[in-house]
Amino acid sequence: MTHTAPRHRPRWWTELLLIVVVYAAYSAGRLLARGDVSTAVDNGLAILRAEKALLLNAEHPLNRLFSETPALGIPADFAYASLHYLVTPAILVWLFRRRPAGYRAARTWLMCSTLLGLLGFTLMPTCPPRLLAAGHGFVDTMAQYSSYGWWGGEASAPRGLGGMTNQYAAMPSLHVGWALWCGVMLWRHGRTPLMKTLGVAYPLLTTIVVMGTANHYFLDAVAGVAVMGVGALLTRPAMRLADRARARFGRIPPASQSPVVGGGCETSAGERIPGQRTSSAGADDSTPAAAR
């Protein structure tokens, strides 16, 4: 009977290094993808016009609610500035430790989608609602409530470090995209009703937060979901490509072609492997043992 070689869980230090390298490349790419401000504003206004034509205008009422109600606006700003960077790595660690069978595909899906998002930032720099002229009716709640948190008036970056982020990387919304990934992981791998409930609530809450704080348009959120969908389709091909590269350059045979220990080896005359069972008497051989 042929047995498939077991897949071993990746080493934690190689995974950490890989994630750090990809995230550093992503962060650097966001900075390098800074486009012309006037182009970003034009793109933001085009999205706003498209939403109005489609009767999609959830941003304005949500933004008014958050800006006029500190009890909602302040927690929303904290959620926007922190959960994106805490929940996603926490779920990656949870999958690595508790659900190793699904970890590699989940990590690859997240990385593929993130790189697609970077492509979107490069091709379509977009001014978020909070940076549009006041006449468009949006309030920057991050700036309004900045005295309550560590951020300043420049996105969710720590106060004084706004120059280290690209404020026009709004299309697609990876806050929503990553939250959707987290929700799918909680729903798929969680074993309690609470985990599954959180899996549904977290991406929905994130979508409300990014619009209410005027950091994203609704269509940014839709694009974030679309990016995750394309990333999911690319996951299996990306894993197969990585396996082939590892087998070729690392000289590691694929799991389906793992060599069998002792395969093709024969014992010398009169030898047998310890514990080897001898053939039963009379089985296709009638020669007495003494005559062999």
Rank of each mutant, 00 (worst) to 15 (best):
R9E: 12
T14W: 14
L16G: 15
V21F: 06
V21W: 12
R30N: 13
R30H: 11
L31N: 05
R34T: 03
S38Q: 15
A40Q: 06
N43F: 11
L45N: 08
N57S: 08
A58V: 04
H60E: 15
P61W: 01
L62N: 10
N63D: 05
S67P: 11
S67Y: 14
A71P: 04
L72E: 01
A79E: 05
Y80S: 04
A81N: 09
A81P: 15
S82L: 12
Y85S: 08
V87G: 00
A90R: 12
I91V: 10
P100V: 00
G102Q: 09
Y103D: 03
Y103T: 03
R104Y: 14
A105S: 10
W109G: 00
M111V: 07
T114I: 03
L118G: 06
F121H: 04
P125S: 08
P129Y: 09
L132V: 08
A143C: 06
A143P: 13
Y145M: 02
Y148C: 07
G152S: 07
G153H: 15
A155K: 12
A157F: 11
G163C: 08
G163T: 02
Q167L: 08
P172A: 10
S173T: 05
H175E: 04
G177M: 01
A179D: 06
A179N: 11
L180V: 06
L186S: 12
W187T: 03
K196C: 08
L198D: 01
V200E: 02
A201Y: 06
L204T: 08
L204R: 05
L205N: 10
T207R: 04
F218Q: 02
F218M: 01
A221P: 00
A221T: 00
A223N: 02
V225E: 09
A226H: 14
M228S: 06
M228F: 09
A232W: 09
P237D: 03
D243Y: 09
D243W: 10
R244K: 02
R246Y: 15
R248W: 15
F249H: 15
R251K: 03
I252K: 14
I252Q: 12
P259S: 01
P259M: 04
P259C: 02
V261S: 14
S268M: 02
A269D: 13
E271A: 11
I273P: 08
G275E: 05
A281R: 12
A289S: 07
